[in-house]
């Protein structure tokens, strides 16, 4: 079980929760279960969400493991110049 912090807009779509608990071993499973539990998040996941694991931001590595006790933060998927 990992605790996931959602940024403001995403939290609103998850029923006003800023933190949710999900049983997930990697980013792919996290997204799948989030979409199941909070269907309003699915289009956002589809568009792209970044996942910060202990401060390191992952945008596309959906196979990345979520270590037990790690700080998991969902962030908008940003682009650079």
């Amino acid at each position: 079980m990992v605790e996931v912090t959602l940024w403001g807009a995403l939290g609103q779509l998850a029923g006003g929760r800023s933190k949710v608990e999900v049983e997930a071993k990697d980013i792919r499973e996290l997204f799948r279960k989030l979409a199941e539990q909070y269907p309003a998040l699915e289009p956002w996941i589809e568009k792209g969400i970044a996942v910060s694991i202990d401060g390191v931001i992952y945008r596309d590595t959906w196979g990345k493991r979520l270590p037990e006790g790690a700080e998991i933060f969902l962030l908008p998927r940003l682009a650079g110049g």
């Binding site: 912090t5 940024w7 910060s52 202990d54 401060g55 390191v56 931001i57 700080e71 933060f73 962030l75």
Partner: peptide
């Protein structure tokens, strides 16, 4: 804890 959320490495 960064101002945008996560804790820095």
């Amino acid at each position: 804890r960064s101002s945008y959320g996560p804790v820095y490495g």
